[in-house]
């Protein structure tokens, strides 16, 4: 019944098996199965309203699926409360940024490490790492996040997610609202984060670039998975090229 895809041979970190998620009576996810292995970048692409953000919210425990199971490191987390899932190592940079507007940049980053011990040296290291990835955040450290530009807020949301030192990073349209030159930089950063050891589940409108950096990809269509496979193959798939890469 479940269509488990190959995961590049690595260990499975996250497994979604036939999940159905609703908003009230709206059936947003109609049986999604996907997985992410250790060390991978997996991308989830698809049209507006296909259910990409809902998938990430389901994994994160913000909208619990009514049916199906989600496993993280083999443990069933389908109905676990969000804060416990976060403590297990799942961290998200949400669509639309959601920074804490009346907290400073520094406080926002601190909130990212909320469930960790701030006195440990790793906290300082992670802060340094975020400032190295996003020097702009260092310059604006004491500014209120609500007064940052949209692009700066996007960087902050990503930096904040990294402060959790996640074992799985969920990124929902991290390039949204960024200047073209910075979009490329964001994808470089995603690769860099991944190379430093963090698996990434990446939702993107920018399908071409996402497939460039990803190991594997899933294409979503109105609540279900339409296509899946290694990123390289999806990139050359005719249907994908037509629908998402704007070719004819």
């Amino acid at each position: 019944m479940s269509e488990q895809a190959a995961t590049g041979g690595s260990n499975l970190l996250l497994e979604l098996d036939d999940i159905h998620t609703y908003y009230g009576s709206i059936h947003a996810l109609k049986g999604i199965s996907l997985n992410v292995g250790e060390g991978e970048i997996v991308t989830l692409i698809g049209a507006n309203g296909a259910g990409k953000s809902t998938t990430l919210r389901s994994v994160n425990g913000l909208n619990h699926p009514r049916r199906g199971t989600i496993r993280f490191r083999g443990e069933d987390i389908t109905t676990k409360p969000a804060h416990e899932i976060v403590k297990m190592g799942v961290s998200q940079s949400p669509e639309g940024r959601h920074v804490f507007p009346r907290m400073s940049v520094h406080e926002n980053l601190e909130m990212g490490a909320y469930h960790r011990d701030k006195r440990k040296p790793e906290y300082k290291e992670d802060l340094e790492r975020v400032f190295t990835l996003f020097p702009r955040l260092k310059e604006r450290e004491s500014q209120k996040a609500g007064t940052l530009s949209g692009g700066e807020q996007q960087m902050l949301a990503m930096g904040r997610a990294l402060m959790a030192r996640p074992s799985l990073l969920l990124l929902d349209e991290p390039s949204m609202g960024l200047a073209p030159i910075f979009v490329e930089r964001i994808f470089e950063i995603v690769v860099e984060i991944n190379r430093q050891g963090t698996p990434v589940l990446l939702v993107e409108q920018n399908a071409l670039m996402a497939l460039d950096v990803a190991t594997r990809g899933y294409v979503m269509e109105t609540g279900h998975i339409a296509l899946e496979g290694p990123a390289g193959e999806l990139k050359t798939n005719e249907q994908v090229r037509k629908t998402y890469l704007g070719e004819d």
Partner: peptide
């Protein structure tokens, strides 16, 4: 300030 985001911080 942002309930969803707070949950995503492990709160």
């Amino acid at each position: 300030q942002d309930r969803d985001a707070a949950a995503m911080m492990g709160i």
